[in-house]
Amino acid sequence: MDAPRPAEPGRPSADRPGERGERRETERRDLDLLVWDAPNIDMTLSAILGSRPASSDRPRFDAIARWFLAEAADHEVEGCVFTNVHPTSAVSLRGWIEALRNFGYAVFARPKVHPEDDVDDAMLQHIASRQASHRLRRVVVASGDGRNFLGPLEELHRAGVRVVVLSFAEVAGYAQESALIEFVDLEDVPGAFQVSLGRTRLTALPPDGGWFRPTRPMRALLEDGPPLEHPHHPPPATEPAREPAREPAREPAREAEPPRTAADAASGSTEDPPGRAAPGVGEVGRVPAGPSPRARTG
């Protein structure tokens, strides 16, 4: 497959040193750059859905490209997808990579042999190389990985580059909390998803309200066994806690100890009562998405 090629260095000329530097600066073209962290977006999507995403749950890269181009004006544009390739998935990924290339994306693929074989460094290196070869106007980074991207992206902003993080609000807190980075939720990109992901987004409710479907049937509670005693209810008055009868000890009078709380009495100790953990959230019921809201920046 064709790998993204770095910009070729300028050819030497016989110009005076000052003129050469000025000419090279004017020859640098304006560029809007999109870099997509495929492993991170896929992992985040799986966590949101509670299961491996189906094809209909995955973002449409043609819609992402159209959204990206809408604000590119007449600048040069480049979209790059960075991915890992496990030895067992090389064959199945071929069609996906070819589809991306057909949409105009360059694809950087790295073998995933060891756990540390990530693509974050390659993404940052590519951004730096484009910053050296072009005048970066806008950089869109599709990743929720603030540990690796927060510092470099804020430095880009200080250098005069408009920086946008494209991810999910559940994981991209670093971008939403930064005063230097714009944030766009992936589900706000028009046409990016064929169906609603069923997320609990209380900050994006429609004016007339909206429904959140249950994550599992109510009858599933019958399979959880007997209900647990509520830890904050006092014990029934007809069944007071009793201790074995014993001869009262003759001790000097002393102040009574403070009574235990109702919660302590119910559990039998000062610690939380044992019991089953809350049931895990299953796959969220999803419905066809309506008209997508306009992408927001924050």
Rank of each mutant, 00 (worst) to 15 (best):
A3H: 08
P4S: 12
R5W: 03
P6I: 08
E8P: 04
G10R: 09
G10Q: 11
A14D: 00
D15Y: 12
E19I: 14
R20K: 11
E22Q: 11
R24E: 14
E25D: 14
E25P: 10
T26V: 13
T26W: 02
R28S: 09
L33N: 01
L33Y: 12
V35Y: 02
V35T: 11
A38Y: 10
P39K: 05
M43A: 12
M43F: 13
A47T: 11
S55P: 05
S55C: 02
D57L: 15
F61A: 05
A63R: 11
L69K: 00
A70R: 03
G79P: 10
C80E: 06
C80I: 15
F82P: 00
H86I: 15
H86N: 12
T88C: 03
T88R: 01
S89T: 06
S89Q: 02
V91A: 12
L93M: 10
L93K: 05
E98P: 04
L100Q: 04
N102R: 14
N102E: 14
N102A: 10
F103Y: 09
F108Y: 03
R110D: 01
K112A: 02
H114E: 02
P115I: 13
E116T: 13
V119A: 13
M123H: 01
L124A: 08
Q125C: 01
I127W: 05
R135V: 15
L136S: 06
R137L: 03
R138A: 00
V141P: 08
R147Y: 14
L150W: 04
G160M: 11
S167V: 03
A169R: 10
E170Q: 07
A175M: 01
Q176L: 10
S178G: 04
F183L: 01
F183H: 02
D185M: 07
L186D: 01
P190S: 08
F193N: 04
R199P: 10
T203Y: 07
L205N: 06
G210D: 09
P214I: 02
M218Y: 03
L222V: 04
L228V: 15
E229L: 13
P234I: 10
A237T: 05
A237W: 00
T238D: 01
P240W: 15
A241C: 11
R242Y: 13
E243Q: 06
P248C: 14
A249D: 03
A249Q: 03
P252G: 04
P252C: 08
A263F: 13
A265Y: 05
A266I: 09
G268I: 14
G268P: 13
E271T: 14
E271H: 13
G275K: 11
R276L: 13
A278E: 02
V281S: 04
G282S: 15
E283L: 14
V284H: 15
V284K: 08
R294A: 11
R294V: 14
